[in-house]
Design a protein around this nucleic acid. Structure first.
Lengths: 128, 128
DNA sequence: CCGAATCTTTACGTTAACGTAAAGGTAAGC
DNA sequence: GCTTACCTTTACGTTAACGTAAAGATTCGG
């Protein structure tokens, strides 16, 4: 028997509402077990939720996050499906790399901005 | 006289609609000159639009993008304001760095997924 | 001078991602 | 047995970020 979680436990852990978790279930992203009516979440459910929230922080829609998470556990097992999946992964990786570059650009812009700030300050304040 | 742009030129260049550009103006993010009623965009306007769209691709709301872009050109010039700005920049940078790490994590996850795919394929297909 | 293109404002509509409230079931503690 | 604390479903409300349509001004080539 591995650990299980209640909906409010997960909500508290990830600082979201139970409504949000049920909403994700409604969208078919999480499918917890039931004890009568009550939802019982497995560690796998918890991980999936975690991944959804990470996707959200990175700016992905739920559908996009869903598509990405789906790549982590191959559905089909024949060669054709696997190759299709690998191609999908390759594309996603390229997109993520583009995003990474834009993030670095923005970081650089912030560094430049800070530099200009420091130059505008009296010399005594120039140190960190 | 530096170059100017019409609204539809910018819309075409960035593959958005004119409605989107006017919407950003409505939100106070861009304030183009006017020739009569017609909007005239400067290179600075164009750059700002570009930055807004970059922020969007990185998952920021317009308000967040606005706040970040605001950091690029200091408003106040006294020491207090500059220090406040530098603090803001520092926090934004930390957030961006966290985001960068999550991006790297996701990339790693994709790499792992692809690896598992390859291992599930017949040996002949294992090479890239 | 006329149609086509491009601009304008105004305003209602739409989608994603939840928020919030209502109404009720169940289980624990006093 | 009653309250308190959970859980449930159902359903209408909300916000951001535009889409879309209407109605009209301007300008440009033929």
């Amino acid at each position: 028997m591995s650990k299980t979680y209640s909906i409010s436990e997960l909500a508290k852990e990830f600082d979201i509402t139970t409504r949000t978790i049920r909403f994700y279930e409604d969208k078919g992203m999480i499918t917890p077990q039931r004890n009568g009516q009550t939802r019982i979440y497995s560690p796998a459910d918890r991980t999936k939720l975690k991944l959804i929230l990470r996707g959200k922080r990175l700016g992905f829609s739920l559908d996009e996050s869903f598509a990405i998470i789906d790549m982590y556990n191959p559905k089909g097992n024949n060669a054709g499906q696997l190759h299709t999946l690998i191609d999908g992964i390759r594309e996603r990786r390229l997109a993520l790399q583009r995003q990474m570059k834009e993030l670095q650009d923005m970081l650089q812009d912030l560094d430049d901005a800070e530099q200009r700030c420091r130059e505008a300050l009296p010399d005594a304040d120039t140190a960190s």
